[in-house]
Amino acid sequence: MIVGVLAFQGDFAEHIQVLHSLRVPAIEVRSLEDLSKVSALIIPGGESTVIGKFLQESGVGKEIVRRVALRPLPRLRPAPLPSRERGASLDSAQKNSIPLHPEGGGVAPERRGGGTESLIVYGTCAGAILLAKKVTGKNAPKTLGLIDATLERNAYGTQIDSFEAELKISGIQKPVPVAFIRAPKITHVGKNVEVLAKFRGEPVLIRQGNVMIGTFHAEVRVSSEVHKLFLAMTR
């Protein structure tokens, strides 16, 4: 599996460094062609207004939406149906899809290459904003709307209100050191959204189907635990 990190703007190099420390092949994604090579994608921290514009203008945003919506095949299902033509088997895959488990567990993505397989996505900070269904705050960018949550931009204040913390995250044993940089807040989550971590009683890491978002940066600290949690969504 190759993991892509969206590299229009932001701390994509830090994410790639974490992935390399886990010995996971990782590439920078700046085009539809790059995106077609990956089966998992990280949208990094940065400025959501900037990354959002590139997503819109390049067509990469639309393609992410299309591929996240592709239903992965159930893991133990026999290989699908006689017709092996790409379009046809895709259709059958969609028809035969099962509802996604909130944890994405028990299912494996299709692996046909060429950008036709289902995509899992992890967004940090700006990436989280761009994946949310709704965003509040001034000059909010257009989003991909892939997770049922509302985010408020720069909700803690300006840079002087940025801070570091240690987070307890479900599925990770030790507290994870993270940074909240001009961070957004998750002000509302839909009922099918799983909350994986809270800070001061508010959700900061959530997951729904193929999509996980966090309002903090683990990639700028030494920890790779959150990335492992994300990569486990493919298994």
Partner: peptide
């Protein structure tokens, strides 16, 4: 200033 160093990282690749 850890968070300051972090913010600079978020600006990377930008103008």
């Amino acid at each position: 200033n850890h968070t300051g160093v972090d913010l600079a990282k978020m600006l990377k690749g930008g103008v």
